[in-house]
């Protein structure tokens, strides 16, 4: 019997998320979710020589905390699925080098965390692995110099611009330990509605999230009350308002059961982040830091995480291409 129905993969063997680990920067720690992160780096350079090295160290530390929490050795881990926003994912490559764990490098832009969870869940469900780690990171400073301008350049941000989150999140997916199962995943397709403004990524990615979420609810034949919380990755204020409106038009009225990590991680007004947070680390740290802890505390039982990614590069932007989006949904439920 096929495990896939429509676009959704049903994981009958119930791979579990055993534990999560999160690490965040100073600005993130000053936000509303600041107290939930396992570790805060007060110096953005993390005592390293470059922003890129700091990002690698952040990811290395997130995996370190995860191994410590789960009391597992490197050799217990079958695979690690990881990625970041830097060119050729060097943040992850250098960050995970010393662990000597078989590694799959992913690039799904900011959707990478859910992409990693999807692949981890399938690897475990298929019996190919016992313990798998999904990890991602992003760093404001390394992203800024790669995608936008030097940090000291005097530019003005537009109201729809988003602030790249400095954070890393890691999750351990196991075959038979833990109380929270990944029950279904809906990998998204690439959706492009022709948005070209790199300062409005939320609007560029929102159609992908809408597409994936509608497919997920249809394939599972569940209604809007099924999940305690549906949370998208980094759509921010603009993108998330588009998603909730479009879902309503499609008959899914989630109301305050729906929110977005990019909206939650910062105090939008006080922290001057315009449309909210973005970056791989946004969804990863909010899920690993905040949501999973709320699940462990028993405040949330069924959560759908849908990380969204903007699949552009500086080259494609300069050449005038539009910004395609992708969104992967992962259902996590208490068992």
């Amino acid at each position: 019997m096929s495990k896939k129905k429509g676009s959704t993969v049903f994981l009958e063997n119930k791979p579990r998320i055993l534990e999560t680990a999160s690490i965040a920067g100073q600005k993130e720690s000053e936000g509303p979710l600041g107290c939930y992160f396992d570790c805060v780096i007060t110096d953005g350079r993390f005592n390293e020589k470059s922003w890129e090295k700091a990002e690698s160290k952040m990811q290395r530390q997130a995996v370190g905390i995860l191994l410590e929490k789960t009391k597992k050795a490197n050799s217990d881990i079958d695979f690690i699925f990881g990625g970041d926003l830097l060119n050729q994912c060097v943040g992850t490559s250098f960050g995970l080098l010393d662990y000597s764990i078989p590694f799959f490098g992913l690039y799904g832009a900011c959707s990478t965390f859910c992409e990693g969870l999807c692949l981890s869940a399938m690897a475990v469900d298929g019996g190919f692995a016992h313990n798998v780690i999904a990890v991602t990171s992003s760093h404001f400073c390394s992203s800024e110099r790669q995608f936008r301008f030097p940090l000291e350049y005097g530019g003005q941000r537009t109201p729809s611009a988003q602030w790249t989150v400095t954070a890393s999140g890691a999750a351990m997916v196991c075959a038979d330990e833990g109380n929270f199962a990944i029950t279904a995943i809906t990998p998204g397709k690439i959706v492009d509605k022709g948005i070209k403004d790199a300062n409005n990524m939320g609007a560029a990615m929102a159609p992908a999230a809408v597409d994936t979420l509608i497919k997920h609810f249809t394939d599972r034949q569940i209604d809007e009350n099924y999940y305690d919380l549906v949370i998208t990755g980094d759509l921010g204020v603009v993108g998330s308002s588009i998603v909730s409106e479009q879902l309503e038009n499609a008959g899914l009225v989630l109301g305050n059961r729906y929110t977005d990590c990019g909206k939650e991680i910062f105090d939008i007004e006080k922290q001057d982040v315009h449309a909210g947070g973005s970056g791989c680390g946004c969804c990863a740290s909010v899920f690993s830091g905040y949501i999973f802890k709320k699940m462990q505390e028993g405040n949330l039982n069924k959560v759908l995480v849908c990380a969204t990614g903007a699949l552009m590069s500086t080259t494609s932007t300069f050449q005038g291409d539009s910004i395609p989006g992708v969104a992967h949904a992962v259902a996590v439920e208490r068992i």
């Binding site: 109201p159 729809s160 509605k193 022709g194 948005i195 609007a203 929102a206 159609p207 308002s241 588009i242």
Partner: peptide, 23 residues
């Protein structure tokens, strides 16, 4: 919604730059 319509729709969701203050 075609691409052109979506672009217009998305534009409405963006709060405009605070022109007076910026100027």
């Amino acid at each position: 919604m075609n691409n052109h319509e979506y672009k217009k729709y998305a534009q409405q969701k963006v709060s405009p730059s605070p022109m007076g203050k910026n100027l």
